[in-house]
């Protein structure tokens, strides 16, 4: 949790909303989706604060959605091997948007971090409002997942 005495009280909720919208807009997930729609969705997203070293999720946990790093940094690990270190603007856990079964790695915050959760629940509700844009988003999601799969295959082949 952020300390009320040290947090920036002049930073308004609108600023945060615009930052979140801007960060998602730069990701391949929202390619071709109008900024107004990303802002509409960002309003429904959930910002959570994590302390340094706090577990975000464990491998095998049920996943509820994709996560964007708003502030701080996150380490993603599997079998005690670091897979990635993510900074502001990076996103992870997007598999849960397609299949809410199990997280495939562990994730924890390295420093105090703010993370934005884009839940499958919110995605499904948005798709009901905007089926055309929802289809575009799902194409982006499948393309992102395919790229990750190709990368993983390449890594396996190299080792």
């Amino acid at each position: 949790m952020s300390n009320i005495f040290w947090s920036n009280i002049f930073k308004s909720a609108t600023d945060e909303l615009q930052t979140i919208t801007g960060l998602w807009q730069k990701t391949p997930l929202f390619e071709g989706i109008p900024a107004r729609q990303i802002e509409f969705l960002s309003r429904k997203m959930h910002v959570r604060k994590f302390l340094a070293d706090e577990v975000i999720f464990r491998q095998g946990d049920g996943g509820a959605g994709a996560i964007l790093v708003l502030e701080g940094s996150v380490r993603v690990m599997a079998n005690k091997t670091q897979l990635a270190q993510l900074e502001t603007g990076d996103f992870f856990g997007e598999i849960a948007l397609a299949e809410p079964e199990h997280r495939t790695a562990d994730a924890f915050s390295i420093h105090n971090s703010s993370l934005v959760y884009f839940l499958r629940q919110d995605l499904e509700e948005w798709i009901e409002y905007e089926p055309r844009l929802g289809a575009k988003f799902l194409m982006n999601l499948s393309s992102t997942l395919a790229k990750r799969l190709l990368q993983a295959n390449k890594l396996i082949a190299e080792h």
Binding site: H46, V55, A64
Partner: peptide
């Protein structure tokens, strides 16, 4: 109401709700 959940149960809570 779901935002009242602690970080450790946040995703689980949403998964169950879903």
């Amino acid at each position: 109401m779901m935002n009242w959940l602690p970080n450790s149960s946040f995703e689980l809570g949403w998964l169950i709700y879903h």
